[in-house]
Amino acid sequence: MFDRQIAYWGMEKQKLLENSSILVAGIGGLGCLLSEILVRAGVGRIYLCDDGEIDESDLNRQFLYYKEDVGEKKINIAIKRLAKIHSTTEIVSVNGKIDHDFIIPEDILGVVDCLDNYESRFALWDRLESGMFLVHSGVERFFGQVLTLIKEKSPMLSDIFLNLDENTRPIPISADSAAVISSIASVEVIKNIFRNPALVNTFLIIDLSDFTFNKIQVC
């Protein structure tokens, strides 16, 4: 099944993917496509966490859901759809809200932050164990950012993002921007699994208004 990508990155890296466990936090505009890419890449185990229900307004950008799913729990539909792709990836539901009591699965290499609010993002970072990676992703209108942090080695997520304004809701967002940012975040997750991340302590700022990419190293 994975012949075409093994021809690209080799069997050794495919084994790294198959032996890895990742937590995807949030299965919305970013988490839907990102988790599908990780499944298709052949990641061995993917934990999914989202306590939300599918709203009609999610259908413009959340690729795993259809009109008949409105009102259903996102986690149930996402697992159902992702499990249809193939049987190599074990997809595991993680119940509960991401807060300061959230229990991180013990066997994960790292987490992908596909959340839609910074309070949960900071709680997720707080719950990580030393050495785990967090790939942060965020999207809005025509832009977004991706960043890798390593727990206990990198600055804290909440320190980097001091001075945010969380009051502007709902956040304007469309499928095209969400697809680009989630795809780039998935590349960085795979690079982390290959132990060769490109964005450790470095924001990649993607601006689709003129297709520019910029990096800012944070400290």
Partner: peptide
């Protein structure tokens, strides 16, 4: 000066 994206 960086207003970040907040959505997910």
């Amino acid at each position: 000066f960086f207003p970040p994206g907040g959505g997910g």
